[in-house]
Amino acid sequence: MAKDAYVHKVLPGKPGGPLLFVFHGTGGDENQFLPLGRDFVPAATVISPRGDVSEFGATRFFRRTGEGVYDMDDLARATGKMVGFVEAHAADAGASTVLGLGYSNGANILASALFARPSLFDAAVLMHPLIPFRPDISGSFAGRRVLVTAGRRDPIAPADLTEQLAAGLRGGGADVTVEWHEGGHELRANEIEMARSFLSEAAQRRPDPAVFRQSTDRTANGR
């Protein structure tokens, strides 16, 4: 059954309230972002799947053949599986809003699910994603909101690829905000606070697909 496709944990929230899916980074597990998810959206039911791929003992959501080199067949497999998992939980819960948050490898599988099914999430936070390929977006992101957070000096997810991802999402109709810090692949306070504010606001409203809001770029100092 798709709801049980992954080993996962659920923190129940308000009945009929938002669903927040959180996706760990390489080497993490289903516990990594559960507390953050609860903190960000207290009323949400937080669902955290564990990646089903092991890379020398480190858990991931899909295979790769080297740093920044993805096994595209396995990414396609993982994307279809994740889309089914999210859809099954959303349908069962009758959620008012479906939100997503992922870091690093978790951001990558979340982004790939977005490409495959733009209507899957009402809003999503991609923290330090790496998309080293031109995505094929299957539909329109109109009315959907995406926050991308990144480090200007990230050696794993280069800034130019972050900017290309944001541009691609905007080209598909998404309302995209980019929050930068001046460091590398680590999470910093400004992006944590931006994610908190973004998800809290997103949980309060259901996006109107007919409305397109102009996307914005933000830097760590607000420019």
Rank of each mutant, 00 (worst) to 15 (best):
R77A: 04
G172H: 11
G168T: 13
V86L: 04
R153M: 14
V53Q: 10
A189N: 11
G184R: 08
F56G: 12
A167E: 09
F133Y: 04
R170P: 03
R206E: 15
I109P: 02
F62S: 03
V176K: 05
Q214I: 15
I109L: 10
L20G: 06
R63H: 05
M127C: 09
E30F: 13
S48F: 06
L75Q: 08
P155F: 02
D71C: 01
L11W: 10
D217A: 13
G37I: 13
F62Q: 10
D136E: 15
A150G: 12
A76K: 12
A43N: 12
L11K: 08
G17I: 04
R188S: 07
E186V: 00
P155A: 11
L126D: 07
V69F: 09
G173Q: 07
R63D: 05
P12W: 05
G17R: 01
Y103D: 11
D29T: 09
T162E: 13
H24W: 02
Q204I: 11
G172R: 05
V146R: 00
R117Y: 07
V148F: 00
G184E: 07
P132W: 00
A142G: 10
G183K: 12
L114W: 00
F33A: 06
N31C: 10
I137L: 10
R64T: 12
L169W: 04
I156Q: 15
I109W: 01
L199S: 06
L101F: 15
A5F: 08
G139K: 03
E179W: 08
D175S: 12
A111E: 08
A44Y: 09
I192T: 13
M82C: 06
R205Q: 13
R50C: 09
D29K: 03
L75C: 00
E55N: 10
A43Y: 08
A159K: 07
N190G: 12
F56E: 14
V86K: 03
K14L: 12
T177C: 12
Y70W: 08
V22Q: 02
G171A: 14
V46K: 03
P35G: 03
D122K: 02
G106P: 10
D73S: 11
N108R: 04
A124I: 00
A43P: 09
N31Q: 11
Q164S: 13
N190A: 11
P135D: 07
D74K: 09
R205I: 05
L99A: 05
G102K: 02
H185I: 01
Q214G: 15
S138P: 05
F141S: 05
G139S: 03
G16V: 02
A93N: 07
H181I: 11
T149Q: 02
A159D: 08
S197M: 14
E186S: 10
H185E: 04
G80S: 05
P42C: 03
R206I: 15
F62P: 06
F33H: 09
V7G: 09
R153S: 12
R145I: 01
L20R: 02
G80C: 05
G28I: 10
